[in-house]
Design a protein around this nucleic acid. Structure first.
Lengths: 230, 230
DNA sequence: GCGCCTATACTCTAAATTGGAGTAAGTAAA
DNA sequence: TTTACTTACTCCAATTTAGAGTATAGGCGC
């Protein structure tokens, strides 16, 4: 049995810290509230609670509903202590998977309809996530959220989620508008205008870039919790 | 040998489509330009080019630098065709890993210094990514980028990257300011104010949320390229 | 009171993926 | 000439995912 706790371990601990859950409920709640910041497979959660339980960080109690058994987990003092320790360790950086961006890179190989359709899907995904965000917002306003007593913390998270989605949504709209204004996907006469647009992007540029600096040797390396690079 | 192409396969194809690369260069360039939208392990890329090559989507040529061999890959017509087909398939939604958010959820278990330090790390990570974004911007303005002839497409990507980072950065700053204005991390007297703030968040709320709707059964499911759900 | 459907509550496994360790040759600088 | 770094990979154990599979519970229609 591996002893090293992963971020997924802490995510489960954090969830159980709110109050006891059965594994099934944990998975359901996870879908609802952790899906967007730390998406992991269902089976991984079932595996994780067992591990945490065997390490004494969670306390699992067998219950029965008729003949069917279920295990309800609560956090132990040792588990809470592990969380406290984790809070002081280096955090892994924000990372994302955004397939649509790769599509955009090779869009000129395909048709305008294809890339427009891809961006429509992104727009719809963002709308769906925003709908969910609105629902969570309403739950708090109605005072019926599971973590109602933690609004002062959760509000910060909802703010993040909604700001990010609005940004992605706005980008999608203006990109769609730009592409739809084109006759085709060829570069003809578009690069001039693009350079103007790129010049206006709100970010500082370095003095000059004669030689592009050597990139780091390996792929994105997340920080480990002992502070060493992996 | 599995026949199913993954998004990573297409990401590699998309990269080679620009022009031929040795695997080593591919990995280096990947770190530079794909790291932030589709981060994958180095070894996965070495595996992938071999697979794509054996499937006839890439053409690998052995070269020699002194006694040391290296393989340079270029895309085949079949590979280009595969990309074209992929462009018409459903795209997997935007997804992220954001450990700091989980930290925030359980922040009251630890100290104010801990959560402030975590947010400082996020701010620094964002700054570093923005610095990189500024560098890419400057490369295009200087006319020396590898994909200079594709500015009209790449500008859209740089726009995305910078907008997103500015949003994350701004959130980090205001969250830091909010938390630093607190005496401690207890809920005392903070929830009232938080509800006001949550009310102002720019997202529509549903009519009402009496029963929270049943969440989908499983974890985040990415769309597969044959259109079926996985 | 029976059949059907959906929800609960998991377990199991093949396949994929990751995070390194390891090997070896070229190149530059002290 | 020794050392250090870069290029150019291969290999593998351990983890993780995606999904199939198993079985009970409970509500609803008829």
């Amino acid at each position: 049995m591996a002893e090293q706790l992963t971020t997924t371990s802490y995510a489960v601990l954090a969830q159980v810290a709110v109050h006891p859950w059965s594994t099934y409920e944990l998975v359901q709640q996870r879908v609802r509230y952790f899906r967007y910041v730390w998406p992991r497979a269902e089976s991984a959660i079932y595996r994780e609670v067992k591990r945490l339980s065997s390490m004494g960080l969670l306390d699992g109690r067998k219950e029965h509903v008729g003949k069917r058994a279920r295990t309800v987990y609560s956090i132990t003092e040792k588990g809470r202590e592990a969380l406290r320790e984790w809070l002081g360790a280096p955090v892994s950086p924000f990372a994302m998977d955004f397939e649509a961006m790769i599509r955009l890179f090779v869009a000129p190989l395909g048709t305008k309809e294809q890339i427009v359709s891809t961006l429509h899907q992104v727009r719809d995904d963002v709308r769906e996530m925003l709908r969910f965000g609105g629902e969570v917002k309403q739950e708090f306003l109605d005072g019926i959220a599971v973590t109602q007593d933690q609004v002062y913390i959760r509000a910060l998270a909802v703010d993040f989620f909604i700001s990010l989605l609005n940004t992605v949504g706005a980008w999608t709209e203006r990109t769609l508008a730009e592409i739809e204004s084109w006759d085709d996907l060829s570069p003809d006469g578009k690069n001039e205008r693009a350079l103007e647009k790129i010049r206006e992007l709100p970010v500082a540029t370095p003095e000059s870039v004669e030689r592009t600096p050597v990139p780091p040797r390996t792929q994105l390396q997340r920080r480990r919790h002992d502070g060493r690079s992996v």
